[in-house]
C-alpha cells in the first residue's frame, strides 16, 4: 500500500470534522473522493499532506508515518493541488512549474531540474505557454500548470482537491485525461475529490463516499453510486442507469424534508 490511514480523527477546538477515517490507496490507483459540501473531503486531503494535523490516528506513506518526515521529504512523497488559489504576483508557466523542484535543489535550479520542467510541459501539452504569465491562461490551462508543478515534485502520491469544479466540460475532460495518462505513464497514485459523480465514475478506479466527516462507503463506482446511497448521503432522488460497466447518474429532485 502506498498510503494507509488508520483511525484518523480531526477537529477544530470543539467541532469534530473527521471521525474514524481508515482508508488505503494502492499503487497506480485513482481514488475518487465524493460527498456533499462539508462532508470533509478537502479536510481529509489536507490532513494527508499535513497542511493541518489530525489529533488522532496515523497516516503512513510507504509504511512511514508522515509525522516523522521532514517537510522536504514529505514533498518528495506527496504532491498536492489545493482548490482555487490565485497568485498575486504573476509568474511564467516555466517558473511556476519549476517551483515544484524545490525539494530537489537549493537556491538555483540545475540543468536537470529545467529538463524535468520541460518533460512535464511536454507531457501536459503546455509547451506553447512556457514563457507566458499564468495569469494570461484560462482556468483549465492554469489547473494543468498547477498539476504539472505538483508532478515535477516527482512524488508517488498526488492529491487533487476539486481540480475540475470550475472548468467547462472540455477542460474537465482534458484535465482528467491528463491525470489518467500520468498515472499510466508514471505509476503514481492519485486521490481526487470531485463533485461530478459521472466524471468520478468514469475517471477513477475506486470511489470513497463521504458523509458528515465519515467514510460512508468505498468500492467500485457501480457499487457506490446507487439510488439508495445518493438519497441517503446527498438527500437527492436520482435515476441511475447502466452505461457499460459504469453507473450513470441523472439527479431528479431533492428529497422532501419531513
Amino acid at each position: 500500500m502506498r498510503l494507509e490511514i488508520k483511525d484518523m480523527e480531526f477537529g477544530y477546538a470543539s467541532v469534530t470534522i473527521l471521525k474514524d477515517i481508515s482508508m488505503e490507496l494502492a499503487e497506480s490507483e485513482v481514488l475518487g473522493v465524493v460527498g456533499p459540501n462539508g462532508a470533509g473531503k478537502s479536510t481529509l486531503i489536507r490532513c494527508i499532506d499535513r497542511i493541518i494535523s489530525p489529533q488522532k490516528g496515523s497516516i503512513l506513506v510507504d509504511g512511514t508515518d508522515i509525522k516523522k518526515m521532514s517537510s522536504t521529504d514529505r514533498a518528495k512523497k506527496i504532491g498536492y493541488v489545493p482548490q482555487g488559489v490565485a497568485q498575486i504576483f504573476p509568474t511564467t508557466v516555466f517558473d511556476t512549474v519549476l517551483m515544484g523542484r524545490r525539494p530537489h535543489f537549493g537556491w538555483w535550479s540545475r540543468k536537470e531540474d529545467n529538463e524535468k520542467v520541460l518533460d512535464m510541459l511536454e507531457l501536459l501539452n503546455l509547451e506553447q505557454f512556457a514563457m507566458r504569465g499564468i495569469n494570461e491562461l484560462s482556468g483549465g490551462q492554469q489547473q494543468k500548470v498547477f498539476i504539472a508543478r505538483a508532478l515535477t515534485q516527482e512524488a508517488d502520491i498526488l492529491l487533487l482537491d476539486e481540480p475540475v469544479s470550475a472548468l467547462d466540460i472540455r477542460h474537465q475532460l482534458e484535465v482528467l485525461n491528463v491525470v489518467r495518462s500520468v498515472v499510466k505513464e508514471k505509476g503514481i497514485s492519485v486521490m481526487i475529490s470531485i463533485h461530478d459523480l459521472n466524471l468520478a465514475s468514469r475517471f477513477t478506479d475506486r470511489l470513497l463516499l463521504m458523509c458528515d466527516g465519515q467514510i460512508f462507503a468505498t468500492g467500485s463506482s457501480s457499487s457506490i453510486l446507487t439510488p439508495e446511497n445518493i438519497k441517503q448521503v446527498y438527500g437527492v432522488e436520482a435515476n441511475v442507469s447502466k452505461f457499460g460497466d459504469r453507473n450513470y447518474i441523472a439527479p431528479d429532485k431533492p428529497v422532501e424534508e419531513k
Binding site: A75, I78, G79, V81, D95, G100, R102, P103
Partner: peptide, 16 residues
C-alpha cells in the same frame, strides 16, 4: 517565490 503560490501549495512543496 514559492510563498507566492499560496500558503498551502508552498507547504506542500516543502517550504515551512
Amino acid at each position: 517565490n514559492i510563498l507566492n503560490a499560496g500558503d498551502e501549495t508552498a507547504e506542500s512543496i516543502g517550504v515551512h
